[in-house]
């Protein structure tokens, strides 16, 4: 354990624990757009920047992303110093130039007193904030079906060669984890469309309702040891099955007892 000071309060933290976790535990609100618990910290959005110093640093201050900076003994952290807020505001100004119509960005910017970007809005703005959560989640799950393509300002999320991604299983994790709902998908009947690829959804033998894609189920059976028959019915039918099994056991044990 180490002890450090955050916004004037002395707190204890595990050595090596990232500052953002400690800050959040204290209930301090620091914006972070590229942070997702399922994946390693990234340091892309820069909004969680905080000011750090130490008594021994002779007044020198550094600005670091809390999501990646490990807690250290005697560290003095300020999450809302004037400079930090100015930094965050400028960052959001840049975000607004790229994602002017994105509610999440508009909200955060408004919290920092910005309603309109002071820069030139990019041509063809969209809702993608390039936080990389989708691609990192996809990597983490073991598919790596989509990734960041192009460099610099032309960066975007895309499947390989912008074709239907062969490694995608249609689990929708990318779309579900996307903080701005930029990733679009469509479920019509038993067909799912995402990233330009069509998937067939398995249907419950009893209720006829769609569950997950055939590819995803096959993946889980093969790599995660889930018996294929589990995927034949949906959760509702599974519960009914469990209820009637327990019912049969109850009926049988009550009969045994009365004998």
């Amino acid at each position: 354990m180490v002890s450090l000071t955050i916004n004037g309060k002395v707190v204890r933290a595990e050595e090596g624990e990232y500052l953002l976790a400690v800050i959040r535990r204290m209930g301090i609100d620091v914006p972070a757009l590229c942070d997702h618990a399922a994946v390693e910290p990234y340091g892309g959005c820069r909004l969680c920047m905080v000011e750090i110093t130490k008594e021994s640093w002779d007044g020198w201050k550094n600005y670091v992303t809390a999501c990646l900076y490990p807690a250290e003994q005697d560290l003095i952290v300020n999450t809302h110093s004037e400079k930090v807020i100015e930094l965050r505001t400028s960052l959001l100004d840049l975000f607004l130039a790229r994602n002017p119509e994105t509610p999440l960005i508009q909200k955060l910017a408004a919290d920092h007193g910005l309603t309109k970007t002071s820069f030139e809005v990019v041509p063809e703005p969209n809702d993608c904030i390039l936080c990389g959560i989708c691609t990192r989640v996809c990597d983490e799950m073991g598919f790596a079906a989509i990734s960041m393509v192009n460099r610099g300002h032309g960066r975007e999320v895309a499947p390989p060669l912008n074709e239907a991604p062969p490694d995608c299983v249609g689990c929708l994790a990318c779309a579900q984890a996307c903080p701005t709902n930029y990733i679009k998908f469509e479920d019509i009947g038993t067909t799912r469309k995402i990233w330009g690829r069509e998937f067939e959804l398995l249907t419950c033998e009893k209720t006829g309702r769609p569950t997950i894609t055939r590819e995803f189920a096959a993946f889980l059976s093969k790599h995660r040891d889930i018996p294929e028959e589990y995927f034949k019915v949906n959760d509702e039918a599974h519960r009914d099955e469990l209820a009637s099994t327990m019912g049969r056991i109850t009926r049988w044990s009550v009969q045994e007892e009365t004998k």
């Binding site: 689990c171 929708l172 997950i212 889980l220 889930i226 589990y230 959760d235 599974h238 519960r239 099955e241």
Partner: peptide
């Protein structure tokens, strides 16, 4: 279930043989 980590892929819902992930 850690809601912060969950990416809502629905794998657990499909995999639970008792239908108790919802």
């Amino acid at each position: 279930l850690d809601h912060d980590k969950c990416v809502r892929c629905m794998a657990c819902i499909a995999a639970c043989p008792f239908g108790c992930s919802l």
